[in-house]
Computed example of a mutant assay.
Amino acid sequence: MLSKEVEDKIEAIIESVQCYLYDIAFLKENDMDILRISILAKDKNTTLDKCQEVSELISPLLDVYDPSSGKYTFEVSSPGIERTLRNPRNFRLSVGEEVQVRTQSKDEFTAVIKSADEEGVSFEINNKESYYPYSNLKKVKTIFRW
């Protein structure tokens, strides 16, 4: 797990190349530990070259502040077009996007994210704005329409 200090350093590096830190996740896939950092370009064009640039800038930092006692793979990626929103940062970086929402009470609807804070999110649903605390949301996923 990364310390707050290392997360702040990673975020500063990412910001220096005109991107936002979207997420940091430690995952296990096929018995392999993975440190995956997701970034979102400020111009909304998160390219493979941008991911490589961020990877090359963060890698030396991870050599100094090793986040794991064992072997792991380090990846930098975009969060993807359709993605599940998990935390306030994800919601803030998705303002203006269309989402599919499932609440804890099993209601489902499509909405646009109008704003988000540390406690919850405002959705525009059928031209009306409604605020939902994160604790009332079961799953929120962005929608990509062709």
Rank of each mutant, 00 (worst) to 15 (best):
D23Q: 11
K44G: 10
T142D: 02
I113V: 11
E29K: 14
P67K: 05
V54E: 10
I24V: 08
M1L: 15
C51L: 01
K141C: 06
Q52L: 13
F109V: 04
Y65C: 14
E11L: 02
G70W: 01
D31C: 11
S94T: 08
V64F: 13
K141H: 02
N136I: 07
S122H: 01
F74W: 03
F26W: 06
C19R: 01
I125Q: 08
V17Q: 09
E15A: 14
S105D: 08
T84Y: 13
V6P: 13
G96E: 08
T110W: 07
P60E: 07
G120V: 13
Q52K: 03
E119I: 06
E29W: 11
V140M: 04
D49N: 04
I37T: 09
V140Y: 08
K139G: 09
I10L: 05
K138A: 13
I34R: 13
E98F: 12
S94A: 15
T47S: 06
P88A: 00
L57R: 15
E129F: 02
Q18Y: 09
Y65N: 15
M32L: 14
P60I: 09
E53I: 03
I14E: 10
K139V: 12
F91E: 03
I143C: 10
R102Q: 15
F123P: 00
K71S: 14
A116M: 00
Y20E: 13
V95T: 07
K50N: 07
S69R: 12
T142Q: 05
S122G: 05
F123N: 05
L35N: 14
K114M: 09
S122K: 13
E124P: 00
Q104I: 14
A12K: 10
L48C: 05
K106F: 11
E75T: 03
G80K: 00
D8W: 02
V6Y: 11
L61K: 10
E129V: 15
E118T: 08
G96F: 00
D31W: 11
K141V: 09
G120D: 08
R86F: 05
F109S: 07
N30K: 13
F91N: 09
E124F: 00
F109P: 06
R92F: 01
D31V: 04
P79C: 03
E53Q: 06
L2D: 04
K44P: 00
K28W: 12
Q100P: 00
V140W: 09
E7T: 14
A111P: 02
S3N: 12
S130E: 15
T103G: 08
K138S: 12
T110F: 08
M1E: 15
Y131R: 07
C51F: 03
E108G: 03
S130G: 07
E82C: 04
